[in-house]
Design a protein around this nucleic acid. Structure first.
Length: 203
DNA sequence: AGCCAGATTTTCT
DNA sequence: GAAAATCTGGCTA
């Protein structure tokens, strides 16, 4: 059984806000598409975190390095990094060329290619397939090979919009950081069962 | 439901 | 050498 997605279309770069925090809010309800050898994987973005310019918890804070260079690409590029010796995490760059900032994609609602995601994740629990940034990358088959891709032009990994309505977007503090932890830069779709993190910080 | 240790490697100080 | 934008499984209650 294949999920029907009405009117799926690529998001143009001009539709992306040229501000990382606004981009994080705007990406809620949009689709992430990955055409893999096994098939097409699609998830609806339900949770993001912004790491804007000047944020001490952001990877771009100390300037451009070999690892974080994709964060300095024009908005709409993929930044993939490896963390805790185990997981990959996927970000969307959010500023203009040469300025570092990005949006961490934290959770997806799986829409298409669910059997493939289940195989990659080793579980059939729908709610656990892409809830959390490490799980999201694993389910979607994202690793270092996708670092630096232009999500507005690449044909394998890209951002799309369908006509679906977003219930409402809430903001809370971010998860798993030690600096600037009070800033409300985590965004999620209210009521979605696919959102990660402890329940007590849900608004 | 909540707490905690362990996994494991890249990156920068 | 330490810390890191995490997850899992096992423990306690």
């Amino acid at each position: 059984m294949r999920v029907v997605i009405a009117c799926m279309r690529r998001i143009r770069r001009s539709e992306l806000p040229s501000d990382t925090t606004e981009l994080a809010r705007m990406l809620i309800g949009k689709l992430l598409v990955h055409n893999t050898r096994q098939g097409r994987l699609i998830g609806r973005i339900v949770e993001t975190e912004a790491y804007p310019v000047g944020d001490a918890s952001g990877h771009a804070f100390r300037g451009l390095t070999q690892r974080n260079r994709s964060l300095f690409l024009e908005r709409g590029h993929a930044y993939v990094y490896f963390i805790y010796g185990v997981w990959y995490c996927l970000n969307v760059s959010g500023e203009s060329e040469g300025t570092g900032g990005g949006v961490l994609l934290r959770a997806l609602e799986p829409l298409e290619g669910i059997p493939i995601m289940e195989k990659r994740r080793g579980t059939t629990r729908l709610h656990d397939l892409a809830r959390g940034p490490g799980r999201l990358a694993q389910a979607m088959g994202v690793d270092r090979k996708q670092d630096g891709l232009d999500l507005c032009h690449d044909s394998t990994l890209w951002l799309a919009a369908d006509g679906s309505k977003v219930r409402s977007v809430r903001a809370t503090t971010r998860i798993g950081i030690t600096r600037e932890k009070e800033r409300p830069l985590r965004f999620y779709e209210a009521g979605s069962p696919f959102v990660s993190g402890p329940k007590h910080i849900l608004g």
